[in-house]
């Protein structure tokens, strides 16, 4: 029932506290439970797709150059390595197309765990403080709870939104912090095979306006 640890911890804290302090008004308890249930939508919005699996890879080197004169992104593969690549691919199970990098998120696992744990404890302490405080929830608190609920529900809409346009075009902006935080990026690219290069080379256009692409 409770997929979000935040909700689970919060509700348990409320129930325990409710039992220990029987004089606490029920209105407060209901308000907290509603808030916690609403907040759980944020946690449920980003459940990972279990179908994404790991892929095999081929070791090589890649040279990346940002070229202000380039009009389009271009990946140049040495002909010699292409033959090797073909041979390697033949050896891989059926050459399936799941070679895309596993979908990254803006948070590392450690960050998610620590942030989630802190948020859960914050909810517990907030619930305890709210129960212990003598004040009754006024109209402002109820209105605030309503707004928070709406804002939380809105996270379902944005929770699975894709990266910004900068992460969907291969150009110089891909190397900025704004795209770095997504740890992924993609965009149209020209593939070429050449005898003139020794290692695969990625030419990235610089100073290209997004609207022109």
């Amino acid at each position: 029932m409770f997929k979000s640890p935040c909700v689970l911890f919060g509700v348990i804290a409320c129930i325990i506290h409710q039992i220990s302090l029987s004089e606490v008004p029920m209105k407060k308890t209901l308000l907290i439970v509603v808030l916690l249930a609403a907040a759980s939508s944020a946690a449920l919005a980003n459940i990972a797709d279990p179908s994404i699996g790991k892929s095999k890879s081929i070791d090589t080197r890649l040279h990346i150059s940002i070229d202000s004169k380039a009009k389009e992104a271009k990946l140049i593969i040495p002909r010699s390595q292409l033959r090797q690549l073909r041979a390697e691919l033949d050896a891989i199970d059926g050459g399936s197309d799941n070679t895309a990098v596993a979908a990254g998120t803006s948070l590392s696992g450690t960050q998610t765990i620590v942030s989630g744990a802190l948020l859960s404890v914050a909810f517990i302490f907030a619930g305890l403080w709210f129960m212990r405080s003598g004040s009754k929830p006024g109209a402002a608190a109820v209105a605030g709870a309503g707004l928070l609920t709406l804002a939380s529900v809105a996270t379902i809409v944005y929770g699975n939104a894709g990266p910004p346009p900068e992460a969907r075009v291969i150009n110089g902006k891909m190397f900025t912090q704004s795209v770095h935080m997504y740890k992924q990026g993609s965009g149209p690219i020209k593939l070429e095979v050449s005898d003139k290069v020794d290692t695969p080379e990625l030419i990235v256009p610089d100073n290209v306006k997004l609207s022109e692409e």
Binding site: S106, L107, Q111, T112, V114, S115, G116, L118, L119, V121, A122, F123, F125, A126, L128, W129, R132, S133, Q177, M181
Partner: peptide, 22 residues
């Protein structure tokens, strides 16, 4: 005065700092 609100607020801020440091 009742300063009990400061604890959850601080924890919430810490969660935000970990979730989105930049």
């Amino acid at each position: 005065r009742d300063w009990g609100w400061a604890v959850p607020l601080v924890l919430f801020l810490a969660a935000a700092a970990w979730a989105s440091p930049q």
